[in-house]
C-alpha cells in the first residue's frame, strides 16, 4: 500500500519534468531552426506559458473562471518598469513617481521577483474581498477588478504614462530567460497542485458542500492559490514588458484575457498538461497563420491568406475544438510516465 502511494507520488512528479522537457525541446528547435522573429515568438510563447500556468494554479484548481489575471499582469509589468528604467527617463515621462521609485535602478531579476510579489500582494487584498463570492458572481467581480486596474493604469498620467506608452525597457527577456521562468512556474504549479492546500481546493471544486462538510475552508485555500497564481502572472507581466520594450495599458485588457483563457480551455482546464498544451498549440497555430498571411512560396507562385483571415480562422478553430472536445484537448488528463489511477 505504502509502496503504491510512493509510486503515485513519483509518477505525479513526472508530469512537470516531462512538460519542462517539452518546453525545452520546443525552445531548442525554434532557436536552432528559426530566424530572429521566430526566436521572439518563442519568447512570447514562454511568457504565455508562464501566464497561463500561473492562471491555471487558480482557475484549474478552484474551478472559478478569473477574468482579472490580466490586471495582475499589468501590475507586475509596470512595477518592473518603475524599478528598472533609468531615473532620467522616469523624470521625463513619469514625473509623479514617488522619490523611492523615481531613483530606483534595480537589476532585472530582483525587479521581476518584486513585481511578482506586488501582484501577489494586490491579489491578497483584492482576493480577500472577491473570493467571498462564489460561482459566476466571483467571475464578474474579477472582471470588475480588471476594469478597475485598466482604468487606473490608463488614466494615471504621471505614474503610468496613461495611454501613451512607456518605452525604453531593457529587452533582456529572450527565449532562454523566459524558458527559465516558464519552467519555474510549471514546477511551482505542480507543487501547489499536489500540496495539501491544492488537494483541498480541488476537492472543493468537485463538490463544495462535501468539501466544507469535511472541514475544508474553501475561502482560505482559494485565497492561497490566487496569491500564488498572481505572483507568476505578475512575473509574466514583467517579462512581457522586457521582451517588447514597450508598455501600454491596452495590452493588458480584454484581448490578452480572452486569448489566455482560450488557451486554457482549448488545452483542457482540468490539468497542468492541458494548460501547457493549449499555449503551445494555439501559439504555433497563430504563428503559422500569420506567416501564411504574409505569403508562402510554392515554387514560383506565392500563396497568401487575405488580411484578417488569421484572426477569423483562429476563432473558428477554437469554436470547432470546443464543440468537438468540450473538455479540451487533454480532457483533464495529465501527461505521466506511469499511468496512475486518477
Amino acid at each position: 500500500m505504502a509502496q503504491t502511494h510512493k509510486q503515485k507520488r513519483l509518477s505525479a512528479w513526472s508530469t512537470p519534468v516531462l512538460l519542462i522537457l517539452i518546453l525545452l525541446v520546443f525552445t531548442l528547435l525554434v532557436t536552432m531552426l528559426g530566424d530572429k522573429s521566430l526566436a521572439r515568438m518563442a519568447a512570447q510563447t514562454m511568457i504565455r506559458v508562464t501566464f497561463v500556468v500561473g492562471l491555471w494554479v487558480f482557475v484549474g484548481n478552484s474551478g472559478v473562471v478569473s477574468f482579472g489575471h490580466a490586471g495582475y499582469m499589468a501590475i507586475g509589468a509596470y512595477c518592473s518598469a518603475w524599478l528598472t528604467l533609468k531615473p532620467q527617463m522616469k523624470g521625463l515621462f513619469l514625473p509623479d513617481l514617488w522619490p523611492f521609485l523615481a531613483n530606483a535602478e534595480w537589476h532585472v531579476l530582483p525587479a521581476a521577483v518584486v513585481s511578482g510579489l506586488l501582484a501577489a500582494f494586490v491579489a491578497l487584498v483584492s482576493g480577500a474581498a472577491i473570493l467571498r463570492l462564489t460561482g459566476i458572481a466571483a467571475s464578474i467581480a474579477t472582471f470588475a477588478f480588471l476594469a478597475i486596474v485598466y482604468t487606473v493604469y490608463s488614466s494615471w498620467e504621471g505614474v503610468t504614462g496613461a495611454t501613451s506608452s512607456v518605452v525604453g525597457l531593457a529587452r533582456y527577456a529572450d527565449q532562454w530567460v523566459t524558458f527559465g521562468w516558464a519552467s519555474v512556474t510549471v514546477l511551482a504549479a505542480a507543487w501547489y497542485a499536489s500540496s495539501a492546500s491544492g488537494l483541498a481546493l480541488r476537492a472543493s471544486r468537485e463538490d463544495e458542500v462535501a468539501a466544507s462538510a469535511s472541514g475544508i475552508n474553501m475561502y482560505r485555500h482559494r485565497l492561497i492559490s490566487l496569491v500564488v497564481s498572481a505572483f507568476f502572472t505578475g512575473v509574466a507581466g514583467a517579462l512581457f514588458g522586457h521582451s517588447l520594450g514597450v508598455l501600454n495599458p491596452s495590452s493588458f485588457y480584454l484581448g490578452v484575457t480572452f486569448i489566455t483563457l482560450a488557451m486554457l480551455v482549448v488545452g483542457g482546464i482540468g490539468s497542468l498538461t492541458g494548460a501547457v498544451t493549449g499555449v503551445l498549440v494555439l501559439s504555433i497555430m497563430i504563428e503559422s497563420l500569420v506567416r501564411m498571411e504574409r505569403g508562402v512560396e510554392f515554387g514560383e507562385t506565392t500563396l497568401a491568406l487575405p488580411t484578417g483571415a488569421q484572426e477569423i480562422l483562429i476563432g473558428v478553430i477554437m469554436i470547432l475544438v470546443l464543440i468537438l472536445r468540450p473538455a479540451g484537448l487533454t480532457g483533464g488528463r495529465e501527461l505521466r510516465l506511469r499511468i496512475g489511477g486518477r
Binding site: L261, M318, L322
Partner: peptide, 8 residues
C-alpha cells in the same frame, strides 16, 4: 466552454 466559444 460555452462562454469561451461565445467569446471566440
Amino acid at each position: 466552454a460555452m462562454m469561451i466559444s461565445s467569446f471566440a
